[in-house]
Simulated scan of single mutants.
Amino acid sequence: MAINITAHKAVLSQLAPYNARLVAVSKTKPVEDIKAFYEAGQRIFGENYVQELVEKQAQLPADIEWHFIGHLQSNKVKYMAPFVHTIHAVDTLKLLQEISKQAAKHQRTINCLLQVHIAAEETKFGMDRQELQQLLEYWAANAPQFSHVRIAGMMGMATNTTNETQIREEFHQLHQLFGSVKSTFFNNHDYFRELSIGMSADYTIALEEGSTMVRIGSLLFGERNYNGK
């Protein structure tokens, strides 16, 4: 196993002053690795593939808080609706509607984070500001449609670059947008509080720019194995 429990402790100590939480990204990693971090006290794990998430959830302790952090197709929501805690990458109105529909079948409420495109790469997913505004306006005007989802915050991925100034600026802009959305649409809703930014290479910058939740994989689990994915 290439897991790094020492790194896990170090990351937690870095998060503590910011009251930020760690999503341990366990995609492509075996159940045994997840168990090792579970035994070290980690309870929040993030997965990118629905089938893999469903298989792992069935084999692991029931008190794990599962987060889905990958790009999600609407037709796959039903498979994880019985148990998923938070879906990080909600980037369309259609997807938000489907999550609420599937959650309702299980008398559950699923936390959702709205993904905003902040990176230079066109290949990264997420809404632009206009799309975000349109989704939120529809949500506000049609609240009964969304009774089984809770918009708990926002999520973004910075450009894959070594230019820390650029990364910081992208995170900073998203944090400002988060504040604007909070004051406009969620001023009376305490549950809108999560800003999911920061991964293994840039989480320290993200913390300084307002992150409440970092998604860290390779630093904890070692490099990923994509064979068969």
Rank of each mutant, 00 (worst) to 15 (best):
G228I: 10
T123E: 13
E98H: 07
E98G: 01
I3K: 02
W139A: 13
G179R: 01
F83G: 13
A62I: 06
E131S: 12
D190T: 15
S218N: 07
T204A: 06
M213T: 15
H106T: 01
M199I: 00
L135Y: 14
H106W: 13
E137L: 14
E209S: 08
C112W: 02
A58G: 04
R21Q: 13
H117A: 07
G126S: 02
G41Q: 11
E131K: 15
A152H: 01
F171L: 07
Q102R: 14
K27V: 00
G41K: 15
Q97I: 13
H148K: 11
G153Q: 06
A158G: 14
I34F: 04
V116F: 02
R168A: 09
V90P: 05
L174M: 01
I64Y: 10
L135A: 01
P17F: 03
A141I: 00
N75A: 07
A36W: 05
Q130A: 12
A158D: 10
N19C: 03
H67R: 06
Y38N: 10
V181A: 08
E55R: 08
D33P: 02
L177Y: 06
N225S: 13
F186L: 09
H71E: 12
C112R: 05
T204E: 15
K101R: 13
M154F: 00
K29D: 14
A7N: 15
A36C: 12
G198D: 03
D202A: 11
N225K: 09
I110T: 15
G217Y: 11
L174H: 09
Y203C: 03
Y38A: 13
H172A: 03
G210E: 04
E169Y: 07
L12K: 12
N160P: 01
K182M: 04
Y79R: 12
I167N: 05
K182F: 00
G156P: 11
V116C: 06
T204M: 07
Q166L: 15
Q51P: 00
I216Y: 05
K76D: 14
M80N: 06
I3T: 12
N48H: 06
